[in-house]
Design a protein around this nucleic acid. Sequence first.
DNA 1: GTGAAAGCGCTAACAC
DNA 2: GTGTTAGCGCTTTCAC
Lengths: 357, 357
Amino acid sequence: MTRKNADGGGRSTIRDVAARAGVSAATVSRVLGGVYPVSTATRTQVLRAVRELDYVADARAKAIAGAGTPTLGFVLDDITGPSFALMAHGVEREATRLGHLCLVCSTDGDAAHESDFIETMRAQRAAAVILVGGGADTPEYRSRTARFADALAAAGSRLVLCGRPPLDPGAPVTVIEYDNEGGAYALCAHVLSRGHRRILFLGGEPEHTTAQGRERGYLAAHHARGVEADPALRLAGDFTRDSGYRSMRRALETGLDFTAVMAATDMVAAGALTALREAGVDVPGEVSLVGYDDIPFARDLWPPLTTVRVPYEELGRLAVRTALRSAGVGDEHLLLGTHVVVRGSVGVVGGGVSSAG
Amino acid sequence: MTRKNADGGGRSTIRDVAARAGVSAATVSRVLGGVYPVSTATRTQVLRAVRELDYVADARAKAIAGAGTPTLGFVLDDITGPSFALMAHGVEREATRLGHLCLVCSTDGDAAHESDFIETMRAQRAAAVILVGGGADTPEYRSRTARFADALAAAGSRLVLCGRPPLDPGAPVTVIEYDNEGGAYALCAHVLSRGHRRILFLGGEPEHTTAQGRERGYLAAHHARGVEADPALRLAGDFTRDSGYRSMRRALETGLDFTAVMAATDMVAAGALTALREAGVDVPGEVSLVGYDDIPFARDLWPPLTTVRVPYEELGRLAVRTALRSAGVGDEHLLLGTHVVVRGSVGVVGGGVSSAG
DNA sequence: GTGAAAGCGCTAACAC
DNA sequence: GTGTTAGCGCTTTCAC
């Protein structure tokens, strides 16, 4: 059984085209390849054969022979989260703009998946692999990731951490992050400045780097104001709407004492808001609420959510640009700024109701 | 300058490993390949060499030689939309579960990008390419897409339409869609049943298949009730929050007469809701509002949004499963059901306020 | 069990 | 300008 078929199958090879055009495979390669000198007559012949056979060169073969489209791998927790999606979009757009292909994989927070995928990207000889979003920061994680970074670097590739803090210095990684802690600090300072002293923190998984950064900002702001942060006011969870809803209900049932809540993400804030409303608590009249991320509909909640703006898409774009540039060894580190967006969900303690800006 | 390096670079080839282990390349291939009979001694040698060299086989070379991980391409408008993200997640999860790699590309609604990418996937010899979400339904689109379907099929691959209506019958495509029109019909019927007679429809781009389907449902429901649908009540836009906000403002400024609004998506509804609120219009007291998609935070809006539930993630999963199964020629068509989720954003005309369910 | 050799589909010297 | 000849890094007969 032969593989060749002369009619319009996609399975035809460069030799089929050559045969049909009455030239050599090399010539076909040349006309297809671009600007190599080929006579107009042959070029026409070849192009006709290509069209008739509906020939498309095998990219894998090209790649292995030296030409070929470079590929970029990116892995994220869950494309479903709005902020992840924004970063992914930035990565994808910039990559295709630069003529790269994109391989994706979502890990659902599973570190083993992450390892597997990095290995796969290595096998694909990806020009860079981008880890999008925070992750669990354990010692195992750090050493494993550092190993990957080395392996990738040794192969002329590159590991990029996008929205995740650097590994130990010296590891050949590119990191593009935003000022997670700084944003949380500013946000919490804003809430404190309105007189709140007992602020419930609805956090993420304890080892998640993003959650940690935001909690550090929360703590630092308290410290700077000389306000003691009651540990009982810090609840763990994850970054989903449902987690926010559940945590808030629990806090309410437990009879926790607080006048404001700072949610780790806008999604968490959305869930918390609903729980608050169901309990008949007025926001921001009785309890103030802030989120983090400034996702598109943060302004569509009622009251419009005060939150922290993060340049997620920019982050993704920069990640690929920087990765592709800094192909050499050495680590690179970019830190993007954030800013708080004041809307109407924070009230003055014991005072008026709204603080829209 | 030689490519080989004996130390732990990722650039080592199977021959480097063979040399170091004192065996032939074929043997290395065999121990790595799986269950071919190899003596324990050699196996150990080889594995040690692999480890020392940190060798990872080149997936492209494998692919071209016959082995290799199958790849799946998927293209969507914009990963940033919640429903797209859900489908993408389903696709990605199922694909990696089945041991496939995923190549992505977002087109930002540009048909040319779509064509380019399908061509690229053909070059990659993807096992299937999945078009996620609706698109502009023009004659050019239909013929172009049918051509791609043929080309892919001829090459043993497959075109899958996920959340998009079929092409002309006979085209070798797999389509997994949901009952877009049916959902809109049920939703609109619900609104009509509450006494509304002038329902503003905040649609999408006129040629977008999803927008069209939803509009058809809207129209059909009117027709079934014998209510005339005023064309002036149908506004075009896109599926973003901002589009909803702008359209709603315009409708309000124009002094359009309506008692309910049916938004093409929940995102559109979110924007519309804010515009309504800013204009001091009570929802659902004065105007009722419904969306479509049932994205996670639809329930976090105030009032909680009545909408249509679509099994997006399931859609994505089914797309890859079906695609990979129906590798032969012939078209396959799955239609998933939807259902309306009644929450609190629809009121009875001239009557009470809420209709939470 | 293992090696030598052929070949996957392509590109890139090197000839003429 | 164009054909011939080597590879690219791997798998897979086919011998031994």
